[in-house]
Simulated assay, not measured.
Amino acid sequence: MTKDKEVELIRILEHNGRIESDVLAKMLDESEEDVKKTIQKLEDDHVILSYAAVVDWSKIQSEESIAAMIDVKVTPQRDVGFDEVAARIQRFPEVSALYLMSGTYDLSVVVEGQTMAGVASFVSNKLSTLETVLSTTTHFRMKKYKHDGVVFNQDEKDRRMVVSP
C-alpha cells in the first residue's frame, strides 16, 4: 500500500474505527488482505494506539463524572526537561490526558473524577505536592459541546427567548 493510501486509511480509522476491512478495501481500492496487513503493521508500529468510542456520559446519569483542565507551571529538570515530571503526573489514575504547552503554563493536565471535591483533593494532595510543581490553575468543564470532532446534543433546541430591539 502506498504512503498516501496508508495516511488515508489512518484518517478513515481515526474517524470511525469500526469500519470493516472489506469496506475499507473498497474505499481505498485495495485488496482486503493488504488493508488487514497495513492495519496490523500500524498497530505493531504504535501508529494506531487505540480504538475508542466517543460516549455522551451525560445521558447515563449514574456514570457522569467531573472533568477539569489544570494548567501546571513546573521547574524543568536538568537533562530531561519536562519529561520526568510529565512521566510522574501521567501515572496518576485520575489523569486522562497530559500535554506539554507553550505560553504561560508548561503542562495541561486533564483530570476526571466523580466529584468536584475528588478533583480538588487530587490537585491539593497529589499534584501540587510534587517538588517541581510551582503553581496550578484548575478549570472545571461545565458542558461538552464537541469532542474529537463529534458534536454533542445536536437534537436539543435552543430554548432562550429571542430579544430584539
Rank of each mutant, 00 (worst) to 15 (best):
S164W: 10
Q90E: 09
Q154A: 13
F92Q: 06
Q90A: 11
E20Y: 12
T115M: 06
V7R: 15
I48L: 11
T137Q: 12
V151I: 08
R141C: 14
V85L: 11
K36C: 15
V111S: 03
H46E: 11
A52I: 13
L134F: 01
N153C: 00
D71L: 06
F92I: 02
P93Q: 02
D155Y: 09
E63W: 10
E32H: 10
T132K: 05
I10S: 12
H15C: 12
Q77L: 07
D56P: 07
T137S: 10
A87L: 08
P76C: 12
K144N: 09
Y99I: 02
D155P: 04
L24K: 02
V162W: 12
Y145H: 00
H46C: 11
I10K: 14
R11V: 04
E14R: 13
F122T: 09
K59P: 01
A86E: 05
L100E: 08
Q154Y: 13
S65K: 15
V123Q: 05
M142I: 09
S164P: 01
D83R: 14
V133T: 01
I70Q: 06
D148L: 12
L49K: 12
I19P: 00
A67R: 15
Q40R: 15
V55W: 01
E84L: 09
K41E: 15
T129Q: 00
E64R: 14
V35M: 02
E8S: 15
H15M: 13
F122E: 09
V163E: 12
S164C: 10
V162I: 14
I70L: 11
S164D: 11
T75W: 13
T104N: 00
G118S: 06
T129H: 03
S58G: 00
S96Y: 05
D79R: 07
V80E: 06
T132N: 05
H147L: 08
S50C: 04
K157E: 10
L13W: 02
E43P: 09
K5N: 13
N153F: 03
A53R: 03
D34G: 07
L130V: 07
S62F: 06
N125L: 03
T2W: 06
I70F: 04
T115I: 02
S135P: 03
E156T: 07
L24Y: 00
S124V: 04
G118I: 05
I48T: 11
N153M: 01
K5Y: 10
H15D: 14
R159T: 05
A87G: 13
F152R: 03
A120W: 04
T2N: 07
K157D: 07
Q154E: 13
S164E: 09
E33M: 14
V110C: 05
M27D: 02
E64S: 12
G118Y: 01
S121F: 07
V72H: 01
E112N: 10
